[in-house]
Every structure is written in structure tokens, then in C-alpha cells.
Amino acid sequence: MTVYKLCFYVPEDHVEAVKTAVFEAGAGRIGHYDCCSFQLRGQGQFRPLEGSNPHLGEHGEIEIVDEFRVEMICTDDHLKAALSALRLAHPYEEPAIDLWRLEDLPG
């Protein structure tokens, strides 16, 4: 089974709702535990361009937002559902998502 680390950035006021949606889709399971994640507070920035439909900010203006970086494990059999749930629950039109394929630990 292939395992991935899923990482996304979400505004502070939506972090729990997005995590819950992704957990319910099957991400965040490690052994006999579920709802496993790590989160770190920080700031994100973006500038909405013409043609965008921003959740926050104005076209042409840089917006700085208090966000969380959230990381969790996801197996390949739940990956499509987890990404879909993330996108549906996330308030941004274009959420920032990172995905890394993980290797098995030796020993």
C-alpha cells in the first residue's frame, strides 16, 4: 500500500471543519489511531487576479491571512476521497495542497 503525506493550508476559522472532512474521507489514520494530524500556525499571502472569485481580499490587492499548515498521512485507497473532501470543505477557490509519496521506514 502506498502512503502519502498530505499537507494543506487553511484559514484559522475553517481549520477544524476542513480537518474533519478529510478525516471522514479516510485520511489521518496511523495504525490503530485515527484523526492524526500536525498543525502549525502561520501567515499566508496571495493576490486575487482578475477572473478569480476570492473568499477573502480584493482583486489586485495582496491579502495576508492567519492560516494553519495541516499535515496528515493518507493511504492511496483514500487519497481521491480525501482530496475531494478537502476541496469541498475548503473556503478558498484554489487551496494550496502539497502531496508527498512516503517510503517505508527501514527496520
Rank of each mutant, 00 (worst) to 15 (best):
T2H: 03
V3Y: 02
Y4E: 03
Y4N: 06
F8E: 00
Y9D: 01
V10G: 07
V10D: 08
P11I: 13
E12D: 10
E12A: 12
D13M: 08
H14R: 15
H14I: 10
V15E: 06
E16H: 07
A17Y: 02
V18L: 12
K19C: 10
K19D: 01
T20K: 15
T20M: 12
T20H: 15
E24Q: 13
E24G: 08
A25T: 08
A25Y: 05
A27C: 06
G28N: 10
R29E: 01
R29C: 03
R29V: 11
R29K: 14
I30S: 06
G31V: 06
H32T: 12
Y33W: 13
S37L: 01
Q39P: 00
L40S: 08
R41W: 04
R41L: 11
G42C: 04
Q43K: 15
Q43T: 09
Q45C: 08
F46S: 04
P48Q: 13
L49D: 01
E50L: 04
G51W: 07
G51P: 02
S52I: 11
S52F: 04
N53S: 05
P54I: 15
P54E: 10
H55G: 02
L56T: 05
L56E: 04
L56S: 05
L56N: 04
G57H: 03
E58Y: 04
E58H: 10
I62G: 01
I64V: 12
I64F: 07
V65I: 14
D66C: 04
E67H: 02
F68P: 00
R69A: 06
R69M: 03
V70L: 06
V70G: 09
E71Q: 03
E71D: 11
E71H: 05
E71M: 05
E71F: 05
C74Y: 07
T75C: 06
T75R: 09
D77S: 09
D77P: 00
D77A: 11
D77R: 07
H78P: 01
H78N: 09
H78L: 04
K80T: 09
A81K: 11
L83Y: 10
L83A: 13
S84N: 14
A85C: 03
A85P: 00
A85Y: 02
A85E: 04
L86H: 12
R87D: 03
R87C: 12
L88I: 08
L88C: 11
L88W: 03
A89H: 13
A89W: 09
H90F: 11
H90Q: 11
Y92Q: 11
Y92P: 02
Y92A: 14
Y92N: 14
Y92F: 15
E93H: 13
E94Y: 13
A96C: 09
A96L: 13
I97E: 02
D98F: 09
L99K: 14
L99P: 02
R101K: 15
R101V: 10
R101E: 08
L102D: 00
D104H: 07
D104S: 10
D104G: 08
L105D: 01
L105M: 10
G107F: 05
G107K: 13
